[in-house]
Every structure is written in structure tokens, then in C-alpha cells.
Amino acid sequence: MRQYQMKETKEVNKIICNKCGKEIPVINGRAEEGVFSVDYTWGYFSEKDGEKHSFDLCETCYDELLRSFMVPAEIEG
């Protein structure tokens, strides 16, 4: 006797930079360029308590973001 389990899978088919709108190529569920992805849930000491914010930035927009920092990000390697 065979028993089966239903599986639902999700695969990324498109990534769009939230800042500039550029489409990042995706092949077989994998981005073909560098993408900075954020999934952040705000905590108690925020006016956004419990909100989850998610976005993607292409490498160019990420570099622009870093250049805007008053205190540089720590970068290793």
C-alpha cells in the first residue's frame, strides 16, 4: 500500500528592487545577481510593534543606501 503526503512548494520566479523597480533575473528559483533582502518584524519599543516589513534592493540601490549612512556600516572580508 502506498501512502502519499501532499506538499506545497513555493519558488521565486521574479524579484523586483523596491527602490528603483529593476527586475533581477531569476533562474530555477535563484537570483542571478546580488540582492539585499530584508524581512524584519518590529518589536515592543517601536510605533510599528508587530509589523513585518519585507523588501529587496538591487546591488546598486544597496550601495546608494550605504553611502547615505552618517556612520559607515561595518564590512568584513
Rank of each mutant, 00 (worst) to 15 (best):
K19R: 10
E11P: 00
Q3Y: 07
F45V: 08
N18A: 12
Y40G: 03
G21F: 03
R30S: 00
N13M: 11
T60S: 15
G50H: 11
M1L: 12
T9Q: 05
F69C: 14
F69P: 02
Y4T: 05
K22G: 03
E51S: 14
V38G: 02
R2F: 05
A73F: 09
L57R: 01
M6G: 05
V12N: 03
A73Y: 05
F55C: 00
E32F: 09
I75R: 01
H53L: 14
G21R: 02
E8K: 10
K52C: 10
M1Q: 10
C17K: 05
V26L: 11
E32D: 11
K7S: 05
E23Q: 15
Q5T: 14
I24H: 12
E76T: 01
G50W: 10
E8N: 03
G77I: 01
V26P: 00
Y62G: 08
L65E: 02
M1N: 10
Y44I: 08
Q5D: 09
D63F: 08
F45N: 04
W42E: 15
M70K: 15
L57M: 13
F55N: 04
H53V: 15
E47A: 13
I27K: 13
N18I: 02
L65V: 07
A31P: 06
I16Y: 07
I24Q: 13
M6N: 04
G50P: 00
N28P: 08
E23T: 15
D39K: 07
E64C: 05
C61D: 06
E51M: 15
V26S: 07
S37G: 12
N28C: 06
G29N: 08
P25K: 09
A73S: 11
G77M: 06
K22L: 04
R2Q: 12
D56T: 12
G34I: 08
C61F: 02
V71L: 10
E32S: 08
E11W: 00
N18H: 13
L66R: 12
H53G: 02
K52V: 09
G50T: 14
R2P: 08
R30W: 01
H53A: 13
E64F: 09
L57D: 02
R2G: 13
V38K: 08
M6D: 03
V38C: 14
G43V: 00
Y4E: 14
R30M: 05
V71M: 12
K22Y: 03
I75F: 07
C58S: 09
G77K: 12
D39P: 07
E23P: 11
V26T: 00
G43F: 11
K10G: 05
F55S: 03
S68G: 06
E47Y: 13
N13F: 11
G77C: 08
E59I: 01
Y40L: 12
T9A: 09
K52E: 03
I24G: 12
F55Y: 15
K22T: 08
I75Q: 01
M70I: 11
A73E: 06
